[in-house]
Write a protein that binds this DNA or RNA. Structure first.
Lengths: 147, 147
DNA sequence: TAAGTGTATTAAGTATATTGATACACTTAA
DNA sequence: TTAAGTGTATCAATATACTTAATACACTTA
């Protein structure tokens, strides 16, 4: 299902959570399917069940999974985790925008920033789904002074 | 000059940096004045000079101080640290906005968010200086769903 | 009941961060 | 030149937090 990289500096559970999240977001795991049990996946990857458990807990926290005690963990339907994900980002965006205001960055500057970022390339128009990439790698594209 | 709080969980250097930053931003320390030497401030607060040094390094990194080896550390003029601060926040804002796009949050939603955040209360209009408060406490005001 | 599931608690081990001790390098004034 | 001030670099000790594992518990279903 996934494979761990022991050269990676990050903790195992974080690595697992990220790879599984990517699987789900990219459609590699159908909604409503049952995830492997914590024990079986732990066995397969030669780690402690708690480590898998922690990765699952993280995914559940982020809305990608839901759990029924004694039955298993299941993949959430897209509408759920999509909204959950949007909410997380929305909260942070509001916080940072508040800081921008306090720092004296003009609102017009931010407006222009939005037009620029949303204008370029494969924007998600309307309410159609489809992620360009799973992680937030577009963040690396931010390299311009506020002037 | 400042007083440390030993109940605070954060490390001493971080606490010092924050308090000094607040002093500078609020005008408690005139631009171009010399900061206390690392040794004297360390003596005054009963900490190791390295701890003060680290706080100063942080403030220098953020543009609030500049240092001349052998002479001392000095408070930067407002235009400098103001721009530096805006740049830091601007970079992060762009990153988060990029994530918002990838998550499928419509640009119009962000536009509305800006109008809302900038519209309320004591916004910094034009290019006149003046910070409403030193830390990013307005971030706590963000408590609304994206829906 | 038995074998599967997730969960909670606790402890061991490890990594990281923080602070302190000390020595070095630069600037200025006596 | 020297002495006393300044910031800086390096290294070690310690404390803290994190990660992982061991183990026992609780729930569901065949």
């Amino acid at each position: 299902m996934i494979v761990l990289d022991y050269r990676d500096k990050r903790p195992l559970y974080e690595q697992m959570a990220e790879k599984l999240e990517r699987l789900i977001v990219n459609g590699g795991l159908e909604p409503l399917t049952r995830m492997p049990s914590v024990r079986s996946l732990a066995m397969e990857l030669s780690v402690n069940p708690n480590t898998v458990q922690r990765a699952y807990a993280q995914l559940e926290q982020d809305g990608y999974l839901y759990t029924v005690s004694g039955r298993g963990s299941f993949v959430t339907v897209q509408e759920e985790w999509r909204e959950s994900r949007q909410n997380r980002i929305w909260q942070e965006w509001r916080a940072v925008t508040g800081q921008a205001r306090e720092a004296g960055i003009p609102g017009e500057r931010l407006m222009a920033g939005i037009r620029e970022i949303y204008g370029s390339g494969s924007g998600v128009e309307g309410k159609c789904g489809g992620e360009s990439n799973a992680d937030g790698s577009a963040a690396a594209a931010a390299q311009e002074g506020v002037k």
